[in-house]
Amino acid sequence: MTGIDSTGLEEEEPAHDSGAIEALPVEEAASLCAAVERNVAEVIVGNEDVIRSVVTTMLARGHVLIEDVPGVGKTMLTRAIARSIDCEFSRVQFTPDLLPSDITGVNVFNQQTRDFEFQPGPVFGNVVLADEINRAPPKAQSALLEAMEESQVTVDGETRPLPTPFTVIATQNAVEPNQTYELPLAELDRFMTKLSLGYPDPEEETTLLGRAAAHHPIEELDPVADRRDVLRARETVAETTVQEPVREYAARLAAYTRDHAEIGVSPRGTIALVRAAMAHAVAEGRGYVTPEDVQLVAPETLAHRISSGAAGHRDTPGAELVADALSTVPVE
């Protein structure tokens, strides 16, 4: 039952030329984002905001958690993005019996060479879809989360770096909460953004049906960028200017959540907020972050990090509190 879909993981080495990667000019990075978004929009109807967020999270070196009901196109979105940027796509279907090695890979004895050979798991991809992550027990979850945090996996004492770019897009099923292993807050914190697709409205669904009924549109999707472009765009994001007033604003937003909730936004969350804002600025074609960028990315980057303390009541207070913070904390 290990649903590992390893679509060609032969090229083992990640390009170790990251030091030499030159940042794209902001305008080009922005047009790259726009091209990817347009491309993805060919297969995903509506949800432009979510597409933008997934793209910018990738550029900000973050990971995405999508929580939704089944069948709204989570997998489709992930695959479309991977395809658009001509990157390795892999997928792990999380089930209650999933083992960590099912994610990271195993050493297999090769009869011919009479040696152990590493058989990389699905985590060795550029865009990894971790489907229904809350269906697997914590042990399996943590294997993925460690890989996310450290961009490397250790199998049998041997540490292997993951390819770059490496982005996990995890999905979480909002239905059947009794049969799931809810991700603890500490692990949620490792996702830069938490998104939700939602159902399409009737109009969008009509369009969707028109496309999907004939054939599988994802097969016809052509890449609009390559892996190198993505890496260069990431550099662009890293070089984006964040001035003192914006940093202050982000810090004040975080402080507000800490003042008004049992557990507020962690410093990691604040860093994620600013990085997401940087990526957003680049996607807008700007070499600097404005408070609007912070405001736009704040709900998706902060809400899931906030807890009122009582288990099971995470989401609502988080979203509300972020909205409060945005309408209260003054902008300089």
Binding site: E292, S327, V331
Partner: peptide
């Protein structure tokens, strides 16, 4: 402009 409103908004 409201204090929490960003200039662009």
């Amino acid at each position: 402009r409201r204090p929490a409103e960003s200039p662009r908004a």
